[in-house]
Amino acid sequence: MSGTNIMIVGVGGQGTLLASRVVGGAAISAGFDVKVSEVHGMSQRGGAVVTYVKYSRQTVSSPIIGLGGADLVLAFEPLEALRSAAFLKPGGAVITNTRRVDPMPVVVGVAEYPEGIADKLRALGFDVAEADAAGIAAECGSQKAANIVMIGLLAARRADFSKAEWLAAVEASVPKRFLDVNIRAFEAGYAVGS
């Protein structure tokens, strides 16, 4: 299996779908076979969402990733990174946003939000990188660009595609009027991740 399996996880409404399309776009421009599996529907908002991006020099058959199948988890929210742990290959990589979003069971006080998530993941043998993507995005001009900050963080750590291929994929996926802020967000994420 020469391909790369990436899981993008987060909370519905955080822009994981767009992020998965950017990764898919970068992979296709770099000449890989690609499959991207998405989650649709407004009713997913606020819920845990998972998208998969798989690319390979060989044919990619299945669009989804099962237990122990992911090379990397790109987590837009720390709790969702922890939830994905069993989907990672041994020694797999995690890039996570540090900005926590309390799920409703925590909001209403019937569950506790786990502390020290990055350390828990490291204890399981994973390579964990963290950044405040929401804060970085706000400095770039829009908190909504946090998903593209995450893409910048990913780009800095995966050498499969050139920076130009990443930037072209960002440009092809975001609305024209938000392009500048998203380019800034990508560059900021890239700088932090490098």
């Binding site: 122990g68 069993a86 786990p114």
Partner: peptide, 19 residues
């Protein structure tokens, strides 16, 4: 069988919510 980490226990669920 796939080799994978034991899923951490007691992770709060995240059901979808009204916006």
């Amino acid at each position: 069988p796939a080799v994978c980490a034991d899923p951490p226990e007691n992770i709060p669920g995240r059901p979808p919510v009204m916006c």
